[in-house]
C-alpha cells in the first residue's frame, strides 16, 4: 500500500435511534484508493455517502471495520485530510485572503510564507485582486473558489468534497467542475467528491461509486475515461458524446429505481 493511499475495510455504521430501532447507514463498505486518484460518489439521499465522507474525515468513528490513510487508522480530523463543504463553512469575520491563509496560520507557518502562498492560490482559483474582499460580498461560485483555495493552502494529501457545488446554478457549476478538474491535474491530490449530480460524478470521476440505501452500500462501481479526457477536450464536448449520454441514462435509471423502491417501502410501512 502506497504511503498516501486510502484503504477502507468493511466499514459499517449503525445508528441506534433514541426511540428504539436502528438504521444501517453503511454495511461492509470496502475499497482502496491510490494516491492521485479522483473518486466520485453518487446516490439517493439516505445511501450513507455523507456518513462515509464523515468517517474518512475523522468526524465519525465507524461501528465496524476501519479506514486507514497512509500508515494510520483514521480516528480524528487532521490537516492531511482537507475538506470542502457545500456552503457556509467560510469564516465571514475574515476576508478572502485571511480565510485562505487560516490553516497555515493556525499551524504556525511564518506569515511571509503564507502571504506568498495565498497570493499564488488566489491566482490558481481565479480570484486575483479579491484578497481583501469580505467573503459575504462574493457570489456563491466565488465563495466555493475561496473554499477550495483554503483547503489547498494547507497542502492536504486527500481532499474530501461534500457536494461542493450543490448550491450553485447550472452554469457556475460547470465552470467549477472544470476548475476542480484543473486543480486535480495541477496538484495531483487524491480527491473524493460526493455529489447529487450524475453528470458531475461522470465527468469528474476516474472512478465512480453508485451507492444504494438501506443498508447503505456500494451498489456499482465504474471506471471512467472522462476525467482524463477533460484535460484536452472541453467539458461541453465530452458531455455531448454518446458514451457519456449512455452512462448518464444508465445511472439515472438505476437511481430512479432505488428512489421508487424507497417510496414503495415507506408507503407500505
Amino acid at each position: 500500500m502506497n504511503e498516501a493511499g486510502l484503504s477502507v475495510e468493511q466499514v459499517s455504521m449503525i445508528y441506534e435511534l433514541p426511540q428504539g430501532g436502528r438504521v444501517e447507514a453503511l454495511r461492509d463498505v470496502s475499497f482502496q484508493l491510490d494516491p492521485g486518484g479522483i473518486l466520485t460518489v453518487l446516490g439517493p439521499s439516505g445511501c450513507g455517502k455523507t456518513t462515509l465522507l464523515n468517517i474518512l474525515a475523522g468526524f465519525l468513528a465507524p461501528t465496524g471495520g476501519q479506514a486507514t490513510f497512509g500508515a494510520h487508522e483514521i480516528s480524528a480530523p487532521a490537516p492531511e485530510r482537507g475538506m470542502v463543504f457545500q456552503q457556509g463553512a467560510l469564516f465571514e469575520w475574515l476576508n478572502v485572503a485571511e480565510n485562505i491563509g487560516f490553516g497555515p496560520k493556525m499551524r504556525g507557518v511564518p506569515a511571509g510564507e503564507t502571504t506568498a502562498r495565498v497570493e499564488h492560490l488566489l491566482d490558481t482559483v481565479g480570484l486575483q485582486g479579491f484578497g481583501d474582499k469580505a467573503v459575504y460580498e462574493l457570489s456563491g461560485g466565488m465563495q466555493q473558489r475561496v473554499a477550495l483555495a483554503r483547503c489547498l493552502a494547507n497542502d492536504p494529501q486527500l481532499i474530501l468534497m461534500d457536494e461542493p457545488l450543490g448550491a450553485l446554478d447550472a452554469l457556475t457549476r460547470e465552470k467549477m467542475q472544470s476548475l476542480i478538474l484543473k486543480l486535480w491535474r495541477d496538484t495531483g491530490k487524491t480527491i473524493i467528491l460526493i455529489t447529487h449530480s450524475v453528470e458531475e460524478a461522470l465527468f469528474l470521476g476516474q472512478r465512480l461509486f453508485v451507492m444504494a440505501p438501506r443498508p447503505g452500500r456500494i451498489e456499482r462501481e465504474y471506471r471512467l475515461p472522462f476525467a482524463a479526457r477533460g484535460f484536452d477536450e472541453s467539458l461541453r464536448d465530452i458531455k455531448a458524446t454518446p458514451e457519456f449520454a449512455g452512462k448518464r441514462d444508465e445511472i439515472l435509471a438505476m437511481i430512479w429505481e432505488m428512489e421508487e423502491e424507497i417510496m414503495g417501502r415507506t408507503e407500505s410501512a
Partner: peptide, 29 residues
C-alpha cells in the same frame, strides 16, 4: 455556530484553544 465551520476548522488543523478564540468567539460576537 454552523457545524460545518467547526468541522472545517478541525480539518485545517486548529487545536481547541484556537477553535475557541478564532472560530467560536468571532462567530458568537
Amino acid at each position: 455556530v454552523k457545524l460545518s465551520k467547526i468541522h472545517a476548522a478541525y480539518t485545517l488543523g486548529v487545536n481547541r484553544r484556537q477553535l475557541l478564540f478564532r472560530v467560536i468567539l468571532p462567530n458568537a460576537l
